[in-house]
């Protein structure tokens, strides 16, 4: 007989489903034990255990009778009252603990979306005074106010300089990666169409997750490390001593073989000026170069007029190009 068989025999007997044979086996077990027990004479060999067990029984009986006399309907009611109070308290506590999430649910916070086109680089100051520089063709979405958490959404490339707040982590949900920090500066390059998403760290510590890869454990990055994840391929890679390029963050407009007409309209939009031109030549020329944030409009125009021999006349916000 094996263990499983015996288990089944015992189980069947207890549930009243024994076959005749199984029943006979168990009853024989009782019979044998009973016969052996009847032969044993009480010489007081188990008196110690006898006293111990009786002590245990007495203790349990006494404890139970105390509980019983205390268990009048009145005290039951009181007990229920305490339960109710505990319930209310826990609801209040939970409501307080998740007050921000609750208020977000009831009245979703107002969100801002900042978008850059192919020429623009924009600097955004977040509600916690963290700075984000958005590279070309990127989009950043963030709430008007941060509460318990600091969550933003990014598609494209951006440099983040996050204000330190040990109590509230800052999370960037990019197209393929999720980056969690407390206060550091780093660059994320991750758009919906990106083949390789990257995170490079300038200062502090950064945690990167790949939400789509459930098995992937979060990677912790230190300064000068760059994490890259080829979308769809398994794990991300960490590269040490990476050159984290943030030069572009100082720029304002970037052009590569861009027709001058488009350069002018990009300048007009970024610098809030109006540019008019009757010169058709400018549509045939292209411009490659960038303007920095600190460059003012006069500087920008001077560069362009020298490069192309244009005559540029500025009257307040109106600029004429000939």
């Amino acid at each position: 007989m094996h263990l499983q068989r015996l288990k089944k025999i015992v189980g069947n007997y207890l549930s009243g489903q024994s076959s005749t044979e199984e029943k006979v086996i168990i009853e024989q077990w009782f019979k044998d034990a009973r016969a052996a027990a009847d032969e044993e004479v009480d010489l007081g060999q188990y008196d110690e255990r006898k006293a111990l067990v009786f002590g245990n029984i007495k203790t349990v009986i006494e404890t139970n009778s105390i509980r019983k006399t205390g268990g009048s309907p009145r005290s039951k009611l009181r007990y229920l009252r305490w339960v109710a109070a505990a319930c209310i308290l826990s609801v209040v506590f939970l409501a307080y603990r998740f007050r921000n999430e609750l208020s977000d649910m009831i009245a979703p916070p107002m969100m801002y979306t900042i978008v850059t086109d192919q020429y623009q680089i924009k600097e955004v100051i977040l509600p916690d005074s963290s700075v984000v520089v958005l590279n070309v063709n990127s989009r950043l979405r963030y709430p008007r106010e941060f509460n318990s958490s600091r969550n933003v959404t990014l598609s494209g490339e951006a440099f983040f300089d996050i204000r330190k707040n040990p109590d509230t982590r800052f999370t960037v949900n990019a197209s393929h990666l999720r980056v969690d920090v407390l206060g550091t500066s780093f660059v994320i390059s991750d758009a919906g169409t990106t083949e390789t998403a990257r995170v490079g760290v300038k200062t502090g510590r950064v945690q990167v997750n790949i939400p789509d890869e459930e098995q992937a454990r979060p990677s912790i990055l230190l300064p000068r490390q760059q994490f890259s994840y080829t979308v769809g391929k398994e794990a991300g890679k960490i590269e040490d001593n990476a050159a984290i390029n943030t030069d572009w963050t100082a720029q304002l407009l970037v052009f590569r073989n861009t027709p001058l007409a488009e350069v002018f309209s990009a300048i007009a939009e970024s610098l809030h000026v109006k540019i008019v031109s009757n010169n058709h030549e400018i549509n045939k020329r292209t411009f490659t170069g960038s303007f920095l944030k600190e460059d003012d409009i006069t500087e920008v125009l001077k560069i362009l007029s020298l490069s192309y021999g244009l005559e540029i006349k500025q009257t307040g916000d109106l600029i004429e190009v000939n």
Binding site: W29, F30, D32, A33, R34, A36, A37, D38, E40, D42, Y46, R49, K50, V53, F54, I57
Partner: peptide, 18 residues
């Protein structure tokens, strides 16, 4: 208590043999 002391030994012995 009397009942307990009377039946302690046969019952204990029975359970022990089982």
């Amino acid at each position: 208590s009397l009942l307990y002391h009377q039946y302690w030994h046969p019952l204990f012995s029975f359970a022990n043999k089982l």
